[in-house]
Computed example of a mutant assay.
Amino acid sequence: MKGSTIPLLFAGVTLTAAYPITGDVVNCRSGPGTSYSVVKQYTQGQDVTITCQTEGTNVNGVTIWDKTADGNCYVSDYYVQTGVNGYVTGRCSGACTAPKSNQATVDLIAEFEGFEPNVCMSSWFALAVIFKHSDMRGQTSILLEIQPSAMATSVSKLAALRCRIQSRSPRLMRFEQCITAMITGATLNLNQYGALISWSFNMGCGAAQTSTLVARLNRGENVNTVLAQELPRWVYGGGVVLPGLVRRRNAEVALAQTAGSGPALPVQC
């Protein structure tokens, strides 16, 4: 829990107290993400007033970004001592909103996600089946839980997973947000965007952000050329080429090269 601060009341108006910066040198950026340009910097102990907050790139487990009054820019809430781990002001209107993945993207992710089935006791002491996803770093998250009532109706696991992903699960939204934040120099349609969502969903936002692929896109190189050349490089696990990753990268390239989708990036902040 971060240190506390108290709102000030004056003439019936709520004034939010200034909050101290906790990092040594903290960048305040033009948008809520680490790939946006740096507008100014704050030093440790400097007080900032927050005008609004929004979701952005994950920084050490914190996805909230604070818009500061003096710089009209965004700083990760991880570096601001607000006193809570959540929102202390209203959400920013007009802040960057990540485009929603299209159905082709949802279907691709659902097709290639690996499952780790686990049978357990549900809260009402009946057997349930939980499907888990393990990413390339070994981190596991629950994608789908099928309760006994669903098991009795022969529900398709793939259809159920598609429904879960399509319903805007926090996991999918996190990768939409990080791709939107890190792609600053390219214009993408929804299929090209979806290929990147699937890739980052599989490999992780950190790996994507430091990749040559993203760097080339942000230099303004041809999108489909970059994806066709760079995505097939991401097929290794433990130093060995994995056939499942080869198929997934090929499917992502094919999705990116499929015409007929609407615009995705850039978004207006």
Rank of each mutant, 00 (worst) to 15 (best):
residue 193 Y to E: 02
residue 55 E to V: 14
residue 226 V to P: 09
residue 54 T to H: 11
residue 266 P to C: 03
residue 98 A to S: 15
residue 206 G to I: 00
residue 118 N to Q: 11
residue 229 Q to L: 11
residue 62 V to C: 14
residue 178 C to T: 15
residue 207 A to D: 03
residue 72 N to E: 07
residue 17 A to R: 13
residue 198 S to M: 00
residue 132 K to Q: 05
residue 30 S to V: 00
residue 247 R to A: 01
residue 167 S to G: 13
residue 163 C to N: 08
residue 197 I to F: 03
residue 75 V to I: 15
residue 21 I to N: 13
residue 78 Y to M: 13
residue 58 N to M: 15
residue 74 Y to F: 15
residue 38 V to W: 02
residue 175 F to H: 07
residue 215 A to G: 11
residue 263 P to C: 07
residue 139 Q to Y: 04
residue 227 L to H: 04
residue 212 T to F: 04
residue 136 M to T: 10
residue 63 T to E: 14
residue 203 M to W: 00
residue 87 Y to S: 08
residue 222 N to F: 10
residue 168 R to Y: 02
residue 98 A to T: 12
residue 191 N to Q: 02
residue 160 A to M: 14
residue 52 C to V: 01
residue 67 K to F: 01
residue 86 G to D: 15
residue 31 G to L: 07
residue 254 A to I: 02
residue 197 I to C: 05
residue 147 Q to F: 14
residue 210 T to E: 02
residue 210 T to M: 01
residue 251 A to T: 04
residue 121 M to Y: 08
residue 50 I to T: 10
residue 197 I to H: 06
residue 251 A to V: 07
residue 22 T to M: 10
residue 157 K to Q: 14
residue 9 L to E: 08
residue 87 Y to V: 05
residue 81 Q to L: 14
residue 179 I to V: 13
residue 258 T to E: 01
residue 143 L to R: 14
residue 78 Y to Q: 14
residue 242 L to N: 06
residue 103 Q to E: 09
residue 120 C to P: 00
residue 33 G to H: 10
residue 182 M to V: 06
residue 208 A to L: 06
residue 188 L to I: 04
residue 85 N to C: 11
residue 153 T to K: 15
residue 67 K to A: 02
residue 204 G to F: 02
residue 70 D to E: 15
residue 52 C to H: 01
residue 112 F to Y: 15
residue 238 G to W: 07
residue 48 V to G: 10
residue 46 Q to T: 11
residue 2 K to A: 04
residue 159 A to C: 01
residue 158 L to C: 08
residue 256 A to Q: 08
residue 124 W to M: 05
residue 233 R to P: 01
residue 164 R to K: 15
residue 266 P to T: 03
residue 139 Q to L: 04
